[in-house]
Design a protein around this nucleic acid. Structure first.
Length: 197
DNA sequence: GTCATAACGTTCT
DNA sequence: AGAACGTTATGAC
């Protein structure tokens, strides 16, 4: 039977301010750079709040005029599709930009773009549970790789039992059954018209 | 393993 | 029409 999982408490590394400026290149480059320069830092205060629940419109009528409070713009149909799927990821599990994009027959960049401005974080749309395809910590709230925002993301996940290694990837030994794969995608969102020429 | 580059879908200007 | 993204795949070291 599954023994009690032992999770070693580890501190969340502080931001290296000097490296923040250098993360404005491609995501991949930033990813590699941050892995390479990682070193233990003193702990910083982090926001571990995973209990704030925002009102979430469910009907088409409510969604028609929904405004994203982060951007002041209307929330698009696609963005709601992404948020609907993200909201299905249970506490203690994670998903990836790629998984979500495949479920929606979209692209990982489009998913990332929608999650970046997620107005329903951390609940009911726990975008901190979405990582990149290598299970690297990835980005949060516009930052990528390192920073206070990333520390918050890591802290939330840690609080939910997700363990990262020293390179900010999900610890390999803990990956089994970690990735949520039960997305419920409404039929009308899966339809893709292929032109019969 | 690192690094550059192209391709992806969506959104904003 | 062009640029920007919380991405990913591929190919060349």
């Amino acid at each position: 039977m599954p023994a009690e999982r032992t999770i070693v408490r580890r501190t969340v590394s502080a931001v290296s301010a000097a490296t923040l400026k250098s993360t404005k290149k491609t995501a991949q480059a930033a990813h590699i750079k941050n892995v390479a320069i990682h070193e233990p830092k003193k702990p910083v205060a982090v926001d571990e709040d995973i209990s704030t629940v925002h009102p979430y419109p469910l009907t088409a009528r409510e969604r028609e005029n929904a405004i994203n409070q982060n951007t002041g713009r209307k929330i698009t149909v696609f963005q709601f599709q992404v948020y609907d799927l993200c909201a299905q990821i249970p506490k203690g599990q994670i998903s990836t930009y790629k998984h979500i994009s495949e479920a929606l027959q979209s692209s990982p960049r489009a998913v990332g773009q929608a999650l970046k401005i997620n107005p329903y974080a951390p609940l009911p749309v726990p975008c901190h549970r979405v990582l990149d395809s290598k299970l690297y910590i990835g980005g949060f709230s516009g930052q990528w790789g390192e920073g206070e925002k990333i520390d918050n993301k890591k802290a939330k996940l840690f609080h939910e039992g997700v363990v990262f290694d020293e390179t900010d990837h999900v610890a390999v030994a803990t990956r089994e059954n970690l990735i949520f794969d039960g997305f419920n995608v409404p039929i009308n969102k899966k339809i893709k018209v292929t032109a019969a020429i």
